[in-house]
Write a protein that binds this DNA or RNA. Structure first.
Lengths: 139, 139
DNA sequence: CTAAACCATGAACCTGGGTTCAAGGTCAAG
DNA sequence: CTTGACCTTGAACCCAGGTTCATGGTTTAG
């Protein structure tokens, strides 16, 4: 299989495959007589695995950790399971941050609606965002 | 005010203040006789504004947009209001992505619990993540 | 025979928001 | 008069996950 075929079949691009090789995510491939990389279905499975793991939020470094265990001849189940638990906790932390950010933005949006542009003096940069002189004129 | 005092008062570091200056977020400051940057309270307000806007999820480029309008003598209310609305939509998109990711990770976590490591052959990389040969042995 | 469509390599570049480094000037206290 | 804590500059570096570029070889269709 040529590199372009591999890339296409796995939903990646040719430079990305070479990049994965440099990052030790893919083994040094065989070469055809003309010097072209020659891939097999195991390589395709591997790239597909990388993309699947990536779409589950794993970083390339974490994926390499899994592949290294596999290449060592061991089942990576335990490691993967821990990785998933940690990632889930991380996703939940990030979601909590986004909820807080959403609330903050909603607060700012309401301020923007209550605030009369004509009342914005030159002394502040933006009374919507600036919380220093906080109070808003009573309606 | 010295740069270190400004940084400290605004909750930033000295290199960050210089960085903001390079990024045109802060005007070229006055210099004291010894060549030191000399800041006033308007500068402090400005840095505080930048930090407040950043903590509401605005990028430095967006913040510069607001400051440019201000420096132009106009009230940036309308622009800021739009920015906030867009940012809110973006945060909600990102949250939806994270919810999907959370579900995916939960699914993988359950798979990990159902899957018997002893059954993981050498033929796959990791049956928890790999969805190719999906079915899991009935309990 | 030539043009298109592949492939090869190494190196540089991108985003964002800074941090770190190297080499040197300034100023107050002890 | 020296030590330490400031300040100055430009340039390089960090993270991740690639993309882009320059230059050149190979193969296939017309």
């Amino acid at each position: 299989m040529l590199i372009g075929e591999l890339a296409h079949a796995a939903g990646a691009t040719t430079p990305t495959i070479r990049f994965y090789e440099r990052q030790q995510l893919l083994p040094t491939p065989l070469r055809s007589g003309n010097g072209y990389r020659d891939y097999n279905t195991a390589d395709l499975d591997r790239v597909r695995f990388i993309r699947a793991a990536q779409s589950s939020g794993l970083s390339l470094a974490e994926i390499r950790g899994i592949l290294d265990i596999r290449d060592d001849g061991q089942p990576p189940c335990r490691h993967v399971s821990d990785l998933i638990d940690n990632k889930l906790a991380e996703v939940r932390r990030r979601m909590a941050e986004l909820v807080a950010l959403e609330q903050e933005l909603q607060r700012l949006g309401e301020r923007a609606r209550l605030l009369n542009p004509a009342e914005c003096g030159d002394s502040d940069i933006c009374r919507i965002i600036d919380t220093a002189r906080d109070p808003i004129p009573a309606p």
